[in-house]
């Protein structure tokens, strides 16, 4: 009997070890491939000069980098406040009834809707109905709609993690609901909310499907000067280079673009970790 248990333990453990090893190897292979093949094209020119449509090796990818950054900033400032407020409203103000549970499940399911569907939604609502045309603004709003369910879900998790004793203590001292939320609940859950939001955002910025329908183009002569301009973005640039470009070196340039995109997303995750670390430290000072 005893031996049997130990054997079982060993089998399961080696299985888990293999699975972990396999995922690590896959990750290393992907990153390794991208970096080894794409590293040659990275240069100051590649990062800081505008795209030369005639010959991609003569210019850089500046418009795409800036486009993705604009997209990120715009989405951050729309989706994060909207998502966090929605989460607070859902979690703190609506009583836990059947209706509210249905709303919650619906939001969770929205998080699983394929990104191309958000693209179609953005096309119908922002581009056509609100007549914002295919533009940076339409794309920001589309990406915001897409990240909103992720942000709400992540924020609700952090709100739920606030111990009931803290709320109870504040209310028992005569705090109003809003005072309790402002002074106790939000400070306690903000690190988690911000981290969840940034991770959601970084995931969204790597998406091609939702933005091609609503404003991203393969080539713009210059940087967008207003939110109503069309724009370039890294994932779409990468996609075109990898699939539809005739230049013999297009593949290397696609991988170089991928390196830049991966780096931006990695930096965002790092920022999220730093923010969380900083806020935690402040909280426990």
């Amino acid at each position: 009997m005893k031996n049997n248990r130990i054997l079982k333990e060993k089998i399961i453990f080696s299985f888990i070890k293999m699975a972990a090893f396999f995922s690590a190897i896959t990750l290393v292979l992907i990153i390794g491939y991208v970096f080894i093949r794409g590293f040659k094209v990275i240069s100051w020119q590649f990062l800081f000069q505008e795209v030369q449509q005639r010959d991609i090796t003569k210019g850089g990818i500046l418009q795409a980098i800036i486009g993705t950054i604009y997209l990120g900033i715009g989405t951050f400032f729309i989706a994060v406040p909207a998502g966090i407020s929605s989460a607070i409203f859902l979690n703190e103000y609506i009583p836990d009834t059947k209706t509210s549970r249905v709303i919650r499940v619906a939001i969770r399911n929205l998080a699983g809707v394929p990104s191309i569907v958000y693209g179609l939604f953005g096309l119908a609502v922002f581009v056509q109905f609100f007549n914002l045309k295919t533009s940076l603004l339409s794309a920001i709003l589309t990406l915001s709609s897409m990240t909103l369910p992720w942000i709400i879900t992540a924020s609700e998790e952090s709100l739920k993690a606030v111990p009931f004793e803290f709320r109870e203590a504040a209310l028992a001292m005569g705090a109003t609901n809003w005072q309790t939320i402002k002074k106790i609940v939000i400070p306690h859950s903000l690190p988690g909310m911000i981290t969840g939001s940034i991770l959601g955002l970084s995931r969204a910025l790597g998406e091609t499907a939702p933005i091609i329908l609503v404003g991203a183009t393969f080539y713009c002569r210059s940087l967008p000067t207003s939110v109503f301009d069309k724009f370039m973005a890294l994932p779409y640039h990468l996609f075109i280079l990898a699939t539809q470009h005739a230049h013999p070196q297009a593949h290397e340039y696609a991988l170089g673009t991928a390196i830049v995109l991966i780096t931006i997303i990695y930096l965002m995750s790092l920022t999220a970790i730093l923010i969380r670390y900083h806020l935690r430290k402040k909280k426990n000072a």
Partner: peptide, 21 residues
């Protein structure tokens, strides 16, 4: 009710200071 709770305070079974200074 906030006024009532200011006048009638409560100390709980488990010490529950806020995670603040």
């Amino acid at each position: 009710v906030t006024n009532l709770r200011q006048n009638i305070g409560q100390v709980f079974q488990k010490p529950n200071p806020f995670p603040k200074s």
